[in-house]
């Protein structure tokens, strides 16, 4: 168990390092001079050179990388070009907003998708199942930024129920959450249905039914109990992906999270800020994955960690 966790933490560190290094190199290969974004209008070449020197961009890429690594081992990810503050600090300020949004979205998703999937599986291959099936396919077929705009047009502009953008009050979270949840509900409920159909048709369920166990217990305790692992895995993976990737929804709703931060940082070529964001979100996503994996033995006593993992 302990060796398993240590091994996974080692993998996490390695992956985070690789991701950050890839981003580091890609950023430096990109055309365009970051210094131009931070110089006064019509800068002289001396001014540009001075800014490049200040940012450490006058050195060769390998030298820059070694310096970056030295600082990284001291816990310093660099100073944001734009904010003139430690990049990690800026990211940490934005992180709670992204986490709040991701938690809200995953809770709504689980609360709707699991009952919906079970409902579809109990009515597998009926007209109702076909209808729900087509509805979920439609749910996963709409561009998320477009769902966001349509919700904004309807509920913020026409009806005026919510603030159109940003984080102004607690109700601001409703529309972004719904936007993310629509796609996730469609994906997760289909998975729940697929798992449940297999389990509802298994012999052990027939045996249990013959012993007079109620349909409700059969569905939830027996069939769903055995479907739980893939479903929780999928929810965990989705949650981890949201920590990296609610970029689009954050941009649509001008939600002050990490996604919005990084899109602006890309435009301004704020290298340290981009690197810090990638590092933080990748580590966070990997930690979530690890926690989900550690849940397995609790959900299914047959699972022994470390043995099955290659």
């Amino acid at each position: 168990m302990l060796t398993y966790v240590l091994k996974r933490i080692g993998q996490t560190v390695l992956t985070a390092f690789l991701a950050t290094a890839t981003v580091f190199v890609l950023l430096r290969m990109a055309p365009g001079d970051p210094a131009a974004n931070y110089a006064p209008p019509n800068p002289t070449s001396e001014q540009l050179a001075a800014i490049r020197e200040e940012f450490g961009l006058d050195q060769s890429i390998p030298v820059q990388f070694v310096t970056f690594l030295q600082h990284l081992f001291q816990g310093d990810v660099g100073t944001s070009f734009f904010f003139k503050r430690p990049a990690l600090e800026v990211v940490m300020e934005r992180l709670p907003y992204t986490i709040t949004l991701a938690v809200a979205a995953i809770v709504v998703t689980a609360a709707v998708a699991i009952p919906l999937g079970v409902w579809m599986a109990r009515r597998a291959d009926t007209a109702k199942d076909l209808g729900a099936n087509i509805a979920t396919i439609a749910g996963q077929s709409m561009p998320d930024f477009w769902i966001g705009f349509v919700l904004l047009i309807l509920f913020a502009v026409q009806l005026g129920w919510f603030e159109p953008a940003g984080f102004t009050s607690a109700s601001s979270i409703v529309l972004p959450t719904v936007t993310i949840a629509i796609l996730q509900i469609a994906l997760i409920s289909r998975l729940v249905r697929r798992e449940m159909v297999v389990n509802l048709a298994s012999p052990y369920l027939t045996v249990a039914r013959s012993r007079g166990i109620s349909e409700r217990a059969l569905t939830w305790r027996y069939a769903f109990g055995n479907s739980a692992i893939p479903v929780v895995t999928a929810l965990g993976t989705r949650f981890a992906a949201m920590l990296n990737g609610v970029v689009i929804v954050e941009v649509v709703f001008k939600w002050p999270g990490v996604g919005e931060l990084v899109v602006n940082a890309l435009k301004q070529r704020d290298f340290p800020l981009i690197q810090a964001t990638v590092l933080v979100t990748v580590v966070l996503a990997l930690v979530v994955q690890l926690l989900v994996d550690l849940l397995y033995p609790l959900m299914d006593p047959r699972v022994r960690l470390g043995e099955a993992s290659s």
């Binding site: 991701a19 890839t22 890609l26 950023l27 290969m29 990109a30 990296n244 890309l266 979100t281 990748v282």
Partner: peptide, 15 residues
């Protein structure tokens, strides 16, 4: 799987 995919794609298009 573990890379922030959309961010990488944006980077490459910028590049």
């Amino acid at each position: 799987m573990s890379l922030p995919l959309l961010l990488m794609l944006l980077l490459v298009v910028a590049l």
